[in-house]
Design a protein around this nucleic acid. Structure first.
Lengths: 375, 375
DNA sequence: GTGAAAGCGCTAACAA
DNA sequence: TTGTTAGCGCTTTCAC
C-alpha cells in the first residue's frame, strides 16, 4: 500500500523523526542524511499523509463551498474567483451542490463539518430563516454567504432590492407602464424576493400597479402555456423584468418561438450580468452583479476571519451593481399596447422549431413606433 | 475546541470504546447506555472526525476532480453529473482547476494525492504525452479522463475526429467549399487537434483544400483585427467550424459587430452542444457531446475500478455524439462568394457598441440567394 | 455489555 | 545531528 514515513525511515536507515525533520525542517539535518532520505522518499514515491499532521491539531487548509448548482454560470463565476484565490494561497476546496434543496444544504454543511473544513462559503436558499446558519453561529464555525443578501449574517452580495428598483425605474423611464416580473421558485431564493420588493417599490413610486412575480420553471424545454398566454395575450406587458439572466434567456427563446421580437414587441431586463448574455443577439440588458468579485470578496473575508485579522465590524458587504445596457430594451412612446407583427425573418427562424405554431397575429402596422436605446 | 470522542465519553460516563460502538454498531450496546451516549453527543455537538477513521486504514471516500476551468459550461456540465452521483453514493469531491496549464495540472494532481483521494477524474491538456499520467499508471493511482480522447488511457469522450469529420461533411453537403476551422490554443487541447484532423479529412475527401486552424483568443473582448480580416476579406470562407461552442459564440458576436449576418453571410458550426447554445438567436448549430453523461460515465468507471469490479478490458469509452441542427448554417447554391449586405437592424444593433465602425459594405443585392436549413 | 489498550502516520519535546 | 517517545481521534481486538 501507500508508503508511510516508517517505510522511508527503514529504507534510508534512519528514524522516522529524522525523516520528518528532513521534510519539515531540512536545515536541521545533516546534508548527507538529508540526501539519503530524499532518495528514499523518491524511491518509494512517498508523500506525507495530511492525516498525521491534522491529527496533531494542525490546520486542514480545507475550505468548504456550498452552491445551489454549477449549471448556472452565476455560481460557476463565483467559484472561479474562489478557486483562483484558494489555489494561490494553498487551500483546498471541497465542493457540494444543493439544487436549492434545504435538506441537501443541511447534508452538505454536515458533511463538510465532518471533514473539518476551516470555514465555509455558501449560497443558501434563504439566509434569514436558516436554522443551519444559526447552528454555525452557535458553534463558532466560520462562514461567509455569497449572494444571500442579509445584514444579519456575514455575507457578500449586491443590494438586490435597490438594483431591481433602479432597473425597473429605468424601464419606466423608457416609457414602459405594464411591466411584469418573472422569477424561478421564489421560495428557493431570498434574492428573488428582494428583487421583487425593488420591482414593487419602483412601480408604486411611478404610480403603477405592481403584479405578483410570475414563477417560471426555467429548466423546462418550453414555456408553460399559461405563462405564454400571459406574455402574448391582449393584456400582455411591454417589458419583462427577469429575476436572473438564465431565466431571461429561456424566456427570450420562448418569445422567439411565439414570433415575438425582442425588443420590438417585448423589452427584457435580466439580472446577474452573465458574461454569456453579452454574446446573445441582441445582447441581453441586465443588472450585473460582480460575480467573480463576490466570490473573491467572500474568500477574503472568510480567510480574514479564520486568521483572526477580522477587525471590520460590519457583517455584510454590499458590492456595487452595474447596468449593462445591452439591446433588449426598447423605448416606447406611451404605455399603449403595440400590435404584434411577425416578420419574415422570425417566421424563418420559427421554422427550425417544429413545434412553433403559425403566427396568430395581424399584419404589419406602419404606425408602430419603436426606438432603440441611445448610447 | 471541537469535541472529541473523549469528551463525549467523559460526559456520558462511559469509555471511548462504548461511545465508538454506540456510533458504529448501535445494536451491540445496551439501549439505556446508547441513549445516554446519544444525549451526550447531542449536548456537545460532537461529530466523529474522519481522521481517526482514515488513520485506521479506512477509505477516504474522497475523489479528486481536475478541470481546466469551470467558466466553460462544458466542464461545469460534466461536474454537475459527477457531483450528482458522488452525493448519491456518499463520496466527497475535491475540485481543482488548471486553466489549461501543465504546471498547475501537476500541482493539482500532487495536492489531491496528498489528500489521499481514492481516485481522480480529470481533463488534461494533452492525454497522450502526459508524464503525470504515466506516474499515476505506475503508482497504481486510479483515474479516468474526461473529454481527453485517447485509447491509451482510461477515458470517456466522444470520437472527436469522427464527429468533426461528420460535421464538416455536413457543411460541405450544404454547398460550402471554403470552410475554415477556428480553435483556441491547439497546444492546450488534444481534442481540438483531433477535431482539426476530422476537418482536414472531410475537406480532402471532398477534394477541397483544408486550412490550418486559425487560433483565437476567446477570452478577449473583441476578435483580433487579423482574425476579422480573415473572416471579412475578399477571400473569406462561407462557413466556420469552431472547435467549441464558447468560441463559436464569441465569433458570432464579432461577426455581428462587423455587420455580418449569421447564417446569411456566414455559416457557423460549433462543438460541445452547450445547453446555452439553444438559447441563442439563431440557435447555434453544434456537434453535441453528452457532457453530463460523460461526467457520469467517468464516475461510474472510476468507482468500478476502485471497487475492483472492473472487468471490462477496454480502457476508453466512446460515447455517441449528436448533431444539433440549430439555425446557424445556411445552404448555399454554389461555392461562390455571397456579397455582404448590411441591414438596417444590424446597424441599429451596432450602435449599441460604441466601437462598431460604420458599414464598409455595398448596398443590398436582391439576387443574394440564401436558404435556411429544412427541418 | 463494557473497558483497557494497541495502533493507524505524523510531529515535537526531550534525551542522547 | 539523531533517536526515543508521547499523543493527536478513532476503531478494534481482547479481557472482564
Amino acid at each position: 500500500m501507500t508508503p508511510t514515513i516508517k517505510d522511508v525511515a527503514a529504507h534510508a536507515g534512519f528514524s522516522i523523526a529524522t525523516v520528518s525533520r528532513a521534510i519539515n525542517a531540512p536545515h536541521t539535518v545533516n546534508p548527507v542524511t538529508l540526501e539519503k532520505v530524499r532518495q528514499s522518499i523518491e524511491a518509494l514515491d512517498f508523500r506525507p499523509s495530511p492525516l498525521g499532521r491534522q491529527l496533531r491539531g494542525e490546520r486542514s487548509r480545507l475550505i468548504g463551498v456550498v452552491l445551489p448548482t454549477i449549471a448556472n454560470p452565476v455560481f460557476a463565476e463565483c467559484l472561479q474567483g474562489i478557486d483562483e484565490l484558494a489555489a494561490a494561497q494553498g487551500f483546498r476546496l471541497m465542493l457540494m451542490t444543493t439544487q436549492y434543496d434545504t435538506e441537501r444544504e443541511r447534508h452538505a454543511i454536515e458533511t463538510l463539518r465532518e471533514q473539518r473544513v476551516e470555514g465555509l462559503i455558501l449560497t443558501v436558499a434563504d439566509a434569514d430563516t436558516h436554522a443551519l446558519l444559526d447552528d454555525l453561529d452557535r458553534s463558532g464555525m466560520l462562514y461567509v454567504l455569497m449572494h444571500n443578501d442579509t445584514v444579519r449574517r456575514p455575507s457578500v452580495s449586491v443590494d438586490n432590492r435597490l438594483a431591481a428598483f433602479e432597473g425597473v425605474r429605468m424601464l419606466i423611464a423608457h416609457g414602459h407602464r405594464h411591466i411584469l416580473m418573472l422569477a424561478g421558485t421564489l421560495a428557493a431564493s431570498d434574492r428573488a424576493r428582494l428583487r421583487h420588493v425593488g420591482y414593487t417599490q419602483a412601480m408604486q413610486q411611478a404610480g403603477l400597479a405592481p403584479a405578483p412575480a410570475l414563477e417560471i420553471d426555467f429548466n423546462a424545454d418550453e414555456l408553460a402555456p399559461s405563462v405564454l398566454a400571459h406574455l402574448t395575450g391582449s393584456q400582455r406587458p411591454t417589458a419583462l423584468f427577469c429575476s436572473n439572466d438564465l431565466l431571461a434567456m429561456v424566456v427570450m427563446r420562448g418569445l422567439r418561438r411565439a414570433h415575438l421580437d425582442v425588443p420590438r414587441d417585448m423589452s427584457i431586463l435580466g439580472f446577474d450580468g452573465l458574461a454569456m448574455g453579452e454574446l446573445l443577439a441582441p445582447p441581453l440588458s441586465s443588472i450585473c452583479s460582480p460575480n467573480r468579485e463576490i466570490g473573491c470578496a467572500a474568500w477574503r473575508r472568510l480567510i480574514a476571519r479564520i486568521d483572526g485579522s477580522y477587525a471590520d465590524a460590519s457583517l455584510s458587504l454590499t458590492l456595487p451593481h452595474t447596468l449593462r445596457e445591452g439591446a433588449t430594451i426598447a423605448a416606447i412612446s406611451n404605455g399603449a399596447q403595440a400590435p404584434l407583427v411577425p416578420r419574415a425573418r422570425e417566421v424563418n427562424e420559427g421554422a427550425t422549431h417544429p413545434a412553433a405554431p403559425s403566427s396568430p397575429y395581424s399584419a404589419a402596422d406602419p404606425t408602430t413606433q419603436t426606438a432603440h436605446l441611445p448610447d
